[in-house]
């Protein structure tokens, strides 16, 4: 599905990621964990095309996309849920969701299951996106990313600043879309228990490099815990 190899990423002149290798197999959930400031979010932004990536390769179903602008990558089927959600604050919930349809290139309708999964999208359809609470914005952001029926969904800290009951719902939603729609998921998190529950693979990142990777069912939780706190 998604195959990143030898990729460097820069913020301005400073290199944040050094030769990243990462793979998201078809239909799997991959978690990328690590301490703050280790380049996890930057890795996602590089995949989305929002930061400079002068060398390396990002392949989506075998197609090289590293030179493509972000809007082309979205059209190729990458759905992005950024840290901080980035809901368009001045637009209504319905408009935010309609924008999610744009990568399809035509006027369509968001799939029904999104409304069932996140009832707040329908209930607050005419409210301004900026007036929703953090948890509601997170649900809208995921719904918006799913509207275009992406092949892969990338989520940046979806549990950050969100109350436990909604975290559960979001975890369930991620599992559900992965199982029923076959959408691959790449998720960046600090909340280790959350990802161990939903992910198939786990990567640990440190100073822009992957220092540990494993199948979740074989992973050494104590070791990951240690890598993330030390």
């Amino acid at each position: 599905m998604l195959h990143v190899s030898g990729m460097d990423a820069y913020y301005g002149e400073s290199r944040v990621i050094n030769g990243l290798d990462l793979e998201v197999p078809d239909g799997k959930i991959v978690a990328l964990v690590g301490r703050n400031g280790m380049g996890k979010s930057t890795a996602l932004k590089s995949i989305m095309g929002l930061v400079k990536t002068p060398c390396g390769s990002i392949k989506m179903n075998g197609e090289e996309i590293i030179k493509k602008p972000a809007y082309d990558r979205a059209r190729l089927g990458i759905g992005y849920v950024p840290q901080g959600r980035d809901i368009f604050p001045q637009m209504t919930v319905a408009e935010n969701l309609e924008l999610g349809l744009l990568p399809l290139g035509k006027k369509g309708k968001a799939p029904e299951y999104i409304y069932e999964m996140f009832p707040i999208i329908e209930r607050f359809a005419s409210r301004k996106g900026g007036d929703l609470s953090g948890g509601q914005q997170q649900q809208l952001a995921i719904g918006r990313a799913l509207a275009a029926q992406p092949k892969i969904l990338i989520l940046d800290e979806p549990t950050e600043g969100i109350q436990p009951s909604i975290i559960k719902e979001i975890g369930r939603a991620i599992r559900q879309i992965n199982e029923t729609k076959g959408i691959s998921v790449l998720i960046v998190e600090q909340y280790l228990d959350f990802v161990l529950e939903i992910a198939d693979y786990i990567y640990v990142m440190e100073k822009g490099e992957i220092i540990y990777k494993s199948l979740v069912k074989d992973c050494n939780e104590g070791e990951i815990q240690r890598l993330m706190t030390e």
Partner: peptide
Amino acid sequence: AMAQCMGI
């Protein structure tokens, strides 16, 4: 940035 991620 987010608009670009929406395919705009």
